[in-house]
Simulated assay, not measured.
Amino acid sequence: MPHSPLPFSQTALLLADQDHVAVATRELSPGAVLDLAGTPLAERGTLEVTQAVPMGHKLAVRDAVQGEQVRKYGQSIGLALSPIAAGQHVHSHNLGMDPAEREHEFGTDRIRPEAPADLPRTFLGYHRPDGRVATRNFIGVITSVNCSVSTAKMIADQFRGIGALDGYENIDGVMAITHQSGCGLVPDSEGGQMLLRTLRGYANHPNFGGLLVLDSAAR
């Protein structure tokens, strides 16, 4: 009994129009028929899966002769070790290394998609003074040394639980950022500079709307 065609968009992901393989987004069984309407392969109508393809594995959507480069992401990912027919499972049993020389470039195919014209451009977030946008609005309690870890955690714990922030509907929470360093650390040393860079990175994160910095609790 023939299988009813399944929409390709619900079963596999073609990463570039000319790729030989697509990524299965669900487990595919032999005999499954994929409807190619709306894809770069639409002129072929349908594609029948001839071998079991686990979810996340490669499904051949185009034939490849033995020795041919097999493409994914628009790039060669290896050479066909034997003839590969559309519908087959592509894996280490039929795909080998491609020794061809390549010129590697970074970011040359970056594409900025256009915003859909028929959808309102809204975003539930928080605008920061420097122009960045946050998806959360936390208050951070950051410790400069490990001596103040317990104090930072106790402060943050005061704002946990039901009703703790009912009077501040735009505050998502209070978070303690702690570490096990700082005390006795020379600020100009490699370790000291690494710690400062890390703390500055947390402090500068757009999801923090405010900060409380704690030094040694013993001072």
Score class of each variant (00 low, 15 high):
43 E>N: 00
149 V>D: 13
24 A>Q: 04
190 E>T: 11
168 Y>C: 11
128 R>V: 06
163 G>V: 03
110 R>S: 09
4 S>F: 07
172 D>V: 09
214 L>A: 02
133 V>F: 10
218 A>E: 06
42 A>P: 02
25 T>H: 00
103 E>I: 00
71 R>Q: 13
188 D>E: 12
60 A>V: 10
79 L>A: 03
130 D>V: 11
208 F>W: 02
93 H>T: 10
29 S>L: 13
216 S>Y: 02
193 Q>G: 09
209 G>H: 07
38 G>R: 02
152 A>Y: 14
89 H>S: 02
155 I>F: 12
157 D>S: 15
170 N>E: 09
111 I>Y: 14
1 M>G: 06
177 I>Q: 00
126 Y>E: 09
52 A>H: 13
169 E>M: 12
102 R>N: 12
25 T>P: 05
44 R>V: 00
186 V>A: 14
219 R>L: 14
189 S>I: 01
191 G>K: 12
179 H>M: 05
212 L>A: 07
161 G>F: 10
157 D>G: 14
153 K>N: 14
135 T>G: 14
173 G>T: 10
156 A>S: 13
43 E>G: 03
126 Y>G: 08
98 D>S: 06
30 P>F: 06
3 H>E: 09
41 L>V: 02
70 V>T: 03
164 A>D: 09
137 N>Y: 07
165 L>F: 12
178 T>N: 07
136 R>A: 14
212 L>F: 06
11 T>E: 01
106 F>W: 08
98 D>F: 08
120 P>E: 05
66 Q>R: 15
107 G>T: 02
142 I>L: 15
41 L>Q: 01
175 M>G: 00
54 P>C: 00
131 G>M: 13
158 Q>G: 15
124 L>W: 08
175 M>H: 08
132 R>Q: 14
149 V>E: 14
43 E>C: 01
112 R>C: 10
24 A>T: 11
11 T>K: 03
51 Q>N: 07
63 D>T: 15
160 R>T: 08
150 S>E: 15
146 N>G: 10
192 G>S: 13
114 E>M: 07
75 Q>W: 07
120 P>Y: 04
113 P>V: 04
142 I>H: 10
1 M>Y: 07
205 H>K: 03
157 D>R: 15
190 E>G: 12
181 S>C: 10
3 H>W: 00
18 Q>V: 04
101 E>K: 11
38 G>Q: 01
152 A>G: 13
138 F>G: 09
55 M>P: 03
99 P>T: 09
43 E>S: 08
45 G>H: 01
177 I>K: 05
205 H>I: 09
43 E>P: 02
166 D>Y: 10
112 R>Y: 13
76 S>V: 01
22 A>F: 06
150 S>F: 15
137 N>M: 08
37 A>R: 01
179 H>L: 06
82 S>V: 12
174 V>N: 09
9 S>V: 02
151 T>K: 15
15 L>Y: 04
205 H>V: 01
96 G>I: 02
183 C>M: 04
212 L>W: 05
131 G>F: 13
65 V>F: 09
181 S>I: 01
89 H>A: 01
46 T>H: 00
159 F>Q: 10
216 S>E: 05
189 S>F: 04
125 G>C: 02
95 L>I: 05
84 I>N: 01
142 I>S: 09
122 T>G: 11
102 R>D: 09
13 L>F: 05
150 S>N: 12
39 T>V: 00
66 Q>C: 15
98 D>E: 01
132 R>T: 14
